[in-house]
Simulated scan of single mutants.
Amino acid sequence: MSPLRYILEKEFKQIFRNPAILKTIFILPVIQLIMLPMAADYEIKNINIAVVNNDHGTLSTDLVQQITASNYFKLVSYTNGFNTAMESLESDRADLILEIPNNFETSLFKEKEASLFLAVNAINGVKGSLGAAYLNNIIQNFNQSFRNKELVPGRFNEIPQIQISSSNWYNPKMNYRIFMVPGILVLLVTIVGMNLSSINIVREKEMGTIEQINVTPIQKFHFILGKLIPFWVIGLIVMSVGFIVAWLVYGIIPLGSYFTLYFFAAIYLLVILGIGLLISSYSENQQQAMLVTFFILMIFVLMGGLYTSIDSMPEWAKWFTKFNPISYFIEVMRMVVLKGSNIKDILPQVLAMLGYAVVINIWAVLSYHKRS
């Protein structure tokens, strides 16, 4: 029996004897994949709005009704005084203030134009900007509807308009969860793989079993492979469980081939597990390994394109993402799941991960020193 087989047998027995690892593999990813896509949503709803209506005409009332009838806004204040509405904004009871002037309807009919004032609570910049964009869109639709209804020769300038017909490819219904679930699945596979592998070798140090292994004739690359392969298998199992949950809960079935996804995941896990083993080799105890892993994961996740578009990042951050394995897998996952891309389409990402895997795992082998 080869030395590698002995190590693999030992590692698998240790894994399946540890109930905490089994829960980490099968239970936590399922709970997280169900909860995270429901909570992590770019779409802002229930935006609190305070309306100052100084006009009280038919048009201003209709406008307020259209705003409150949408799923985005919740009317928390309807007053005649701007100071009262401002108090709501300052006390965080309102996110937006819309002020309608007292001559709104008259100006619209006689002067062919009218002005509205919008104040936005920009402490939460994302919520403020999206809320203002939603409100602007509602006002524009209201304006267009009014023009179409009241348009007669001489009342309004008949300005030529361009009508746009749009078609949403790859995600026709603009379902946010279809976009997020593949990325979150990448995150879960990464967290499970890197966390488990990063404490593996250092746990042997703390238990004292590393010295027993060191006096055996096992080669360093056999030892690293024995530590890597079990968690590589576990990573693929976690990914499979994630696909089952995505199908059962969200009805997501990849347009592309599962083979393409598993092919790239197999290479990607070599990188992630290699980083984990590298951390474990240099760490003196499990606490140190977990802290370093947490630090690296936070940077990888926040700059991986899951929540923030890489194209909107500054140039230095874009260069960093070229060394961030998570960004490659998120991109590949979305390409295959949403667009149906094949191996030829993801070839640049495959080559980048292969190069990354070779460098990291050679480093992991060289970093492990046998001591008598």
Score class of each variant (00 low, 15 high):
residue 184 I to G: 01
residue 321 T to A: 10
residue 346 I to T: 01
residue 285 N to K: 11
residue 93 R to M: 08
residue 133 A to N: 11
residue 321 T to D: 08
residue 205 K to S: 08
residue 363 W to Q: 12
residue 111 E to Y: 14
residue 19 P to L: 08
residue 120 V to C: 11
residue 293 T to R: 00
residue 317 A to P: 05
residue 364 A to W: 02
residue 73 F to W: 14
residue 329 F to Q: 07
residue 363 W to P: 02
residue 40 A to E: 11
residue 99 E to L: 04
residue 26 F to T: 13
residue 334 R to H: 03
residue 213 I to C: 07
residue 181 V to W: 01
residue 315 E to V: 09
residue 246 A to D: 13
residue 53 N to M: 12
residue 123 I to C: 09
residue 174 M to A: 15
residue 105 E to W: 01
residue 278 L to E: 00
residue 203 R to W: 15
residue 179 F to K: 02
residue 232 W to G: 10
residue 264 F to E: 12
residue 234 I to A: 00
residue 26 F to P: 05
residue 339 K to F: 04
residue 253 I to E: 09
residue 27 I to E: 09
residue 58 T to H: 05
residue 197 S to I: 03
residue 49 I to C: 01
residue 278 L to Y: 00
residue 273 L to A: 03
residue 128 G to W: 02
residue 7 I to C: 09
residue 42 Y to P: 13
residue 355 G to W: 04
residue 256 G to S: 02
residue 329 F to T: 06
residue 182 P to H: 03
residue 364 A to V: 03
residue 43 E to D: 09
residue 368 Y to Q: 08
residue 107 S to M: 11
residue 8 L to Q: 08
residue 176 Y to P: 01
residue 13 K to A: 14
residue 299 I to W: 08
residue 295 F to C: 05
residue 28 L to D: 08
residue 292 V to A: 15
residue 170 Y to Q: 06
residue 16 F to A: 03
residue 113 E to N: 14
residue 313 M to R: 07
residue 147 R to P: 04
residue 252 I to Q: 00
residue 186 V to N: 09
residue 320 F to V: 08
residue 118 L to M: 11
residue 177 R to M: 07
residue 202 V to P: 00
residue 232 W to F: 10
residue 219 Q to R: 13
residue 89 L to K: 07
residue 296 I to C: 06
residue 219 Q to W: 13
residue 4 L to G: 05
residue 20 A to M: 14
residue 208 G to H: 11
residue 147 R to F: 14
residue 370 K to C: 13
residue 200 N to S: 10
residue 203 R to T: 14
residue 173 K to Y: 11
residue 99 E to W: 04
residue 342 N to I: 05
residue 42 Y to L: 15
residue 47 I to H: 00
residue 202 V to Y: 03
residue 320 F to Q: 06
residue 113 E to W: 03
residue 20 A to P: 01
residue 103 N to V: 08
residue 238 V to I: 00
residue 360 I to Q: 00
residue 369 H to C: 09
residue 151 L to G: 14
residue 307 Y to V: 15
residue 327 S to L: 04
residue 13 K to F: 08
residue 324 N to F: 03
residue 348 P to G: 07
residue 75 L to N: 12
residue 185 L to R: 07
residue 222 H to Q: 15
residue 294 F to V: 12
residue 333 M to R: 06
residue 130 L to N: 08
residue 201 I to C: 04
residue 98 L to M: 11
residue 25 I to P: 02
residue 295 F to E: 06
residue 28 L to N: 09
residue 21 I to A: 13
residue 65 Q to M: 13
residue 13 K to T: 14
residue 345 D to G: 02
residue 12 F to V: 03
residue 162 I to S: 07
residue 214 N to H: 12
residue 341 S to W: 01
residue 5 R to W: 12
residue 294 F to W: 15
residue 288 Q to F: 05
residue 156 F to N: 15
residue 56 H to C: 07
